[in-house]
Amino acid sequence: MERLLTFDGKGIYCPRADVHIDPWEKVPKALITHGHSDHARWGMGAYLCTHESVPILQHRLGKTNRIQGIAFGENLFINGVKFSFHPAGHVIGSAQIRVEYKDEIWVVSGDYKLANDGISKAFEPVKCHTFITESTFGLPVYKWQNQTAIFDKVNTWWRKNQAEGRVSVITAYSLGKAQRLINGLDPSIGKIYTHGAIENTNSILREHNHFIQDTQFATASYNFKDYQGNMVVCPPSAANSNWVKKFKDFRLGIASGWMQMRGARRRRAADIGFILSDHADWNGLNTAIEATGANEIYVTHGFSRIYSQYLREQGYDAKIVETAFEGERLDSTEEEKIDQTT
């Protein structure tokens, strides 16, 4: 008997509806969980994503009428298969895609986190039989503190740098982490400057009524005196380039879940690591999976071998599935390369 969803080497495929979810090869019809470049790729015949994701996809893929929006919770029927999008809490517009046909329900979660970041719509558990989960941080050493505590650390660090007459530079990828971080900064300390890739994303999101604190595009017209004591938010790739040199006397911080490990912190030439991720931590993954009530779990990008073995020991029917998704990366991602050219 054919399954409702399969993995056909091009993406997650629904044969009955003839659509793909987050495909990485060119296909006619794509349902997209969220706007990160490893999930929303160029070259599909048509795209369907949440209304919130539409401007993000347009920004990335060019303005075209091939991108259509759908509301969270709205039902869409294709050849009898019922599709609906539910908040994944990962970044603005990110969704889990629920697929139902007869008595079979699947949920493709894309990337997700359970904590409410105040900017993406908070994660909602969706009951299903089969759940496709990421495992970027699927190891018991990854446990996140709540974001208020992390923002306190960031602001304290900013104040200290300011007192020493330095610029604070933080890396965060341009869709999601950057906005979350900006909204966590204390604007009474100083100004917030942004790299072009982030400022572009910010202005698009602001146009669509998302609240993002005031930021200023760090253009060539500013000099060190303007930046001194202030904050600059840039994508990771910019921190490794000449671009960052213009801040002269600065301290560099990295905001990433990978900063949990001392080795990862020390390997980077950063002054400080802030443990902040838009992916679920170990407890988050386990809680999310339990809440779906699913018995069958497909584990994708991340520590899939280890995490699926753990799930099997917990009584789930868990399998690894190879995809082209990347999870959180510390180096330059495709997403930023595209953004910097636009």
């Binding site: 190891l139 050493v141 490990m261 080795g263 020991e313």
Partner: peptide, 14 residues
């Protein structure tokens, strides 16, 4: 967590 998972984690953390 099971002992093997601890060991796997140890291997990765170092």
């Amino acid at each position: 967590i099971p002992a093997w998972l601890f060991e796997e984690s140890y291997h990765i953390v170092g």
